[in-house]
Simulated assay, not measured.
Amino acid sequence: MREFGRAVAFEWIKFRSLRSTVWTTLVTAVLPVPGAVFVAATESLQPDDTVLGGSLTIAVPALMLAAVVGVLVVSGEYGSGTTVTTFAAVPRRGTVLAAKAVLVAGLLYALALPSTAAAYLVGDALLDDGYAQGDPMPALLGVAAAFSVAGLLGLAVGTLIRHPAGAVTAVVAGLLLPSMLGPLFGDAERWVAGISPTAALEKLTQTSDATAEAVGSLGAWPSLLLVTGYTSLTLLAAGAALRTRDA
């Protein structure tokens, strides 16, 4: 347990030393609030939308940045060649990946929860009273969890691919393509689009765009559980690859 604590502390030091990772994380945390202000200022909220959904309109791009944070945490080391130092300090590679996962998931959750809550409060204050309110709790807890899961998915993809640009492209495509390609599958659109982390996020935010035809009929929390499940499997595959490959 002490070794794992040291590994997490080591990962935190490395995290703070990478400016690209720090800045991407900060933008991820800040983005939802100005997004709520923009939606209110432009009066672009649809009549059948909710205050919660409108306030978190920019949560989807922020979710993609959360996935990019996960990629950078691991691929940045491969790019700079510091993985050799990391594995020398912590020989158990599974421990290294677990420490990264705890750091990414914990940090993103701790930042996303107050950020999305603040965005909702800002939207609630600025939007007209004519919109349905939505149920912010416990939905905001799930929204913050979705950010953590996206970060872990990015971490897993970054570990598997290792190349920063390739990993970022792959994880962003994984977030976007299901909803983009879903209409091409006709009646199966709800199944194709519904597997994306962005679909789970849209259901949790209770936006009017989260129709059963577009994002599937599975509920918000089961959708989040589904995304968490295949993200966990991807992390297990990443851990197996990390133990068998050269640094």
Score class of each variant (00 low, 15 high):
Glu3Asn: 08
Arg6Cys: 05
Arg6Gln: 07
Ala9Thr: 03
Ile13Arg: 15
Leu18Arg: 02
Arg19Asp: 14
Pro34Arg: 08
Gly35Ala: 05
Val37Ser: 04
Val39Gly: 01
Thr42Val: 14
Asp48Pro: 03
Asp48Glu: 12
Leu56Val: 04
Val60Glu: 13
Ala62Tyr: 12
Val69Asp: 08
Val74Glu: 05
Ser75Ile: 15
Gly76Leu: 14
Gly81Thr: 05
Thr82Arg: 10
Ala89Cys: 05
Val90Ile: 15
Pro91Tyr: 02
Val102Lys: 01
Ala105Gly: 00
Tyr109Phe: 15
Tyr109His: 03
Ala110Phe: 00
Ala110Gln: 00
Ala117Asp: 09
Val122Pro: 03
Ala132Cys: 05
Met137Ala: 13
Leu140Ile: 10
Leu141Ala: 06
Val143Thr: 06
Ala145Thr: 11
Ala145Trp: 09
Thr159Asn: 07
Thr159Trp: 07
Ala165Asp: 06
Thr169Phe: 11
Gly174His: 08
Leu176Ala: 10
Leu176Pro: 08
Leu177Tyr: 11
Leu181Arg: 01
Leu181Trp: 04
Gly182Gln: 09
Pro183Val: 05
Phe185Gln: 13
Phe185Asn: 08
Gly186Cys: 04
Ala188Arg: 02
Arg190Tyr: 09
Trp191Phe: 12
Ala193Pro: 09
Ala199Trp: 05
Ala200Gly: 03
Leu201Glu: 07
Leu204Ser: 12
Ala210Tyr: 10
Thr211Lys: 12
Glu213Asn: 04
Ala214Glu: 14
Val215Asn: 01
Ser223Thr: 05
Leu226His: 00
Val227Ile: 10
Ser232Val: 15
Leu235Phe: 14
Ala237Arg: 07
Ala240Thr: 09
Thr244Gly: 02
Arg245Gln: 11
